[in-house]
């Protein structure tokens, strides 16, 4: 195999990897993490209507709410997931997941949240 062909194949493989792992480059896939850890409160549609919410004093964030989610920076979201709601002056009902998830996995989750809300910081579509 010529080096050119090899480089082309390597590039294609890398792009395929990017396409198939859009939100996480290490550890578990963001979607699977979200389904396992986040659904219970934020809901299977990400709309904050999880199976646990009935007796909660504060309702979980609706991750599909672009207007609200676009007011949060990626760093805010990362911190809320890693250190819990209290770290960003939100509810204690959102626990810190830093003991369970790696920084790479949390970064993947933040990207996945941007997919759910179809928004970026300061800009809702």
């Amino acid at each position: 195999m010529s080096s050119h062909l090899y480089n082309t194949a390597a590039f294609a493989a890398m792009m395929l990897g990017l396409i198939t792992t859009p939100a996480s480059h290490a550890g578990e896939q963001a979607k699977d993490i979200y389904q396992t850890y986040c659904w219970q409160c934020h809901g299977m549609n990400g709309d904050g209507k999880g199976v646990n919410i009935r007796d909660m004093s504060v309702q979980p964030r609706d991750h599909t709410d672009a207007a609200e989610m676009s007011t949060r920076t990626d760093d805010d979201l990362f911190k809320a997931i890693k250190e819990g709601g209290q770290s960003v002056n939100k509810s204690v009902l959102m626990p810190p997941w830093g003991g369970s998830l790696s920084d790479e996995e949390i970064t993947g989750l933040v990207k996945y949240l941007r997919v759910l809300c179809q928004c970026r910081y300061g800009e809702s579509q």
């Binding site: 389904q35 396992t36 659904w39 219970q40 809901g43 299977m44 209507k49 199976v51 919410i53």
Partner: peptide, 13 residues
């Protein structure tokens, strides 16, 4: 694993 045993409801999962 709760994710296998829930469905979307009117007010919540």
């Amino acid at each position: 694993y709760y994710g296998k045993h829930i469905k979307a409801g009117d007010e919540q999962d």
